[in-house]
Simulated scan of single mutants.
Amino acid sequence: MKRLILALAALLTLTASPALAYWEYGHETIASIAYRNVKPQTRAAIDRLLAKQGLLETPTCPARTIEQASVWADCIKPLGPRFSYAYNWHYQNVNICKPFTLKGNCPDGNCVSAQIERDVKLLQDNSVPVREKVMALAFLVHFVGDLHQPLHAGDKGDLGGNRARADYGIYGPERLNLHTIWDGWLAERAISTPPPLVVAYPAEQRVAMSAGSIEDWSRESWQLARDVAYASAFGGDPCREGVPERGKLDAAAIEKLVDPMRLQVTRGGLRLARLLDEAFGPVPPRQ
């Protein structure tokens, strides 16, 4: 029985099961935090727009609620050429061993931070067709979540840590990598650790956590990728010579990563709430 349990655990790790993965649990939690903390009129506007989700014509990928919308951008990936143009919008892997800059790391505006900005503008534009607004809302909810998973914002030229092999506690199948750990096992551990994250936050905390620009948030996630995600798995400075070929997160390291992950999810939710309030509120005057 013990061997069977370990085999099943390894299989879940390799396949990044939706039940565990950040792409579902993390995204849905960020969306729920945002929905709980937006203005009432924003919440009503979100509900009205998502009531039109049938216009997307993706019956296998519904977006009836903000939680469903939060994973829509991943759900549509298997639909092939119809949405292949959006693939590069999920990340902006800025090299953690070089100074931070988005210049050159967001070719032709095809990266997560640029698309977040576009989606807000699409939602603010009354001339945009309803179908495009529903899509912009689903993309926005998802991409703010992506930006707050550090390995979507910084890497070492290894596809966001997908090529960085690493062990997670006692689990160490050959294909397990740093990206999967942060997407799945660590996200599940952190979000399920009490107290619950989906609550109404005090106004002061909402303002403090949602401050800054999208570029500021990008830099912050990039730094977390370098100083926390890679450093914790590879024993310090991930850009030094002699970095181990395979990383390792033992129980103590995992415990230390719970709070940073919970903080990122909370930041993502409250920052998404701010952007949604801006998207559905009065359009700011042009500068």
Rank of each mutant, 00 (worst) to 15 (best):
P129F: 07
G154M: 06
A166E: 12
L159S: 13
F143D: 14
L137D: 06
T180A: 08
G145E: 04
H148M: 11
D125W: 02
N177I: 14
D146T: 09
H152D: 13
L178D: 09
K133A: 12
G157Q: 07
Q124Y: 05
E188A: 08
A136K: 00
R165W: 13
W182D: 10
R131H: 09
S127R: 03
R163I: 09
H152Y: 03
Q124A: 07
G184C: 01
F143G: 04
L176S: 03
L151C: 14
L122H: 00
H142L: 11
M135F: 06
F139E: 10
P129L: 07
R189Y: 15
N162K: 06
D119V: 00
L186P: 11
F143R: 11
Y171C: 15
D167V: 05
P150F: 04
D183H: 06
P173D: 11
L123K: 01
D167I: 07
S127L: 13
L137A: 03
F139Y: 06
I170W: 14
V134E: 09
D158R: 03
R175Q: 09
L178Y: 09
D158T: 13
V144G: 08
G169N: 14
N162H: 09
L159P: 06
R165C: 11
G172R: 07
V144F: 03
K156I: 15
L123I: 08
V128D: 05
M135L: 10
G169L: 15
V120Q: 00
R175V: 13
D146L: 02
W182F: 15
I181Q: 12
M135S: 06
V144Q: 01
R163G: 10
F139H: 07
L151A: 13
S127K: 08
P150C: 02
V134K: 04
H148T: 04
T180C: 05
G169A: 15
P150I: 02
L137K: 01
G161Y: 02
V144H: 01
S127T: 15
A138V: 08
I170C: 12
